[in-house]
């Protein structure tokens, strides 16, 4: 990797990274307060029972036995949280396609920087960002639960596990986007390809509990493996498998390095 490249990329992504990280922190702090507010009202299960049946089925796909740890874990699974975090990964990891698109890649790689070092600089930045986002979400939950009196004790180790699952999901997405970025001539193409992979797989995982055909193919979705299992609250009884995501990250990243080394720029 190269310090000058990392500094440059950091400068470009720092404002949006900071905004998303702070947004995650605030949202997770808020979650704890919302849980307490509901608990003092109709109760968490009561809120779920008030939903129309199809929404109950859908929500039940995310949270089985509504409970405090289950809702805290949902803090990592909220569509808004996922959208912002995954969008950040797509933005940051598509940098090589952006440099190629702008024409600066030729200039950079004519200097004594190997393609591997160039790509490693992007990778370090994106992995650092994934850890930051997962870390900020975790800090938000820890701070939030310490600020209010929770209806039941919070398993802090479980929260850490959930944050690791979330981080693993972002890493899995990083590998996919990096591979698409090095095989695209334009950033727009890389982003469109990433959306073509991530949006359908997210929808498959989200609607799988309501559809047997979707349920049979949910294993293809990276989002299937990133579900945090906090207090055993997942509806399907299948906790996420972060190691699958780590393997996905390792495989796609290795493929990205291999492809980038061989391709004409």
């Amino acid at each position: 990797m190269n310090a000058a490249l990392i500094r440059r990329q950091l400068r470009h992504v720092a404002p949006v990274t900071a905004a998303i990280a702070l947004g995650l922190l605030a949202f997770e702090i808020l979650i704890a307060h919302i849980i307490v507010a509901f608990d003092e009202g109709p109760g968490l299960q009561g809120v779920l029972d008030m939903l129309p049946e199809f929404l109950r089925d859908f929500a039940g796909g995310q949270i089985a036995n509504v409970s405090v740890p289950g809702l805290l874990a949902f803090g990592f699974q909220h569509p808004g949280v996922l959208f912002l975090s995954v969008a950040w990964v797509v933005f940051a990891a598509s940098g090589p396609a952006g440099d190629r698109d702008e024409g600066t890649l030729d200039l950079f790689l004519a200097r004594p920087v190997t393609r591997g070092r160039y790509l490693a600089s992007t990778l370090v930045l994106v992995v650092g960002g994934c850890l930051l986002l997962a870390g900020m979400a975790l800090v938000g939950l820890l701070v939030g639960t310490s600020m209010v009196e929770m209806p039941e004790p919070v398993d802090q180790a479980g929260l850490v596990d959930a944050a690791l699952s979330f981080g693993a999901l972002l890493l899995g997405v990083t590998g996919i986007v990096l591979l698409l970025a090095v095989t695209s001539r334009r950033r727009g193409t890389a982003v469109a390809r990433a959306a073509a992979v991530l949006v359908p797989t997210f929808l498959i995982e989200s609607f799988a509990p309501m559809s047997a055909p979707l349920s049979s193919i949910r294993w293809i979705s990276p989002f299937h493996y990133g579900r945090p299992a906090l207090g055993g609250v997942l509806v399907t009884g299948e906790p996420g498998s972060p190691w699958v995501l780590v393997a996905l990250f390792a495989t796609t990243t290795a493929a990205a390095f291999w492809a980038f080394r061989r391709r004409d720029l």
Partner: peptide
Amino acid sequence: VGYLPGELSLDERLSGRGMLDLMDGLRA
């Protein structure tokens, strides 16, 4: 080697000095 491409593209978000520092930083 020093290289000036025919269709020069610089990182337009940087200043001139920032670009020169970046290019200097891309060394072995």
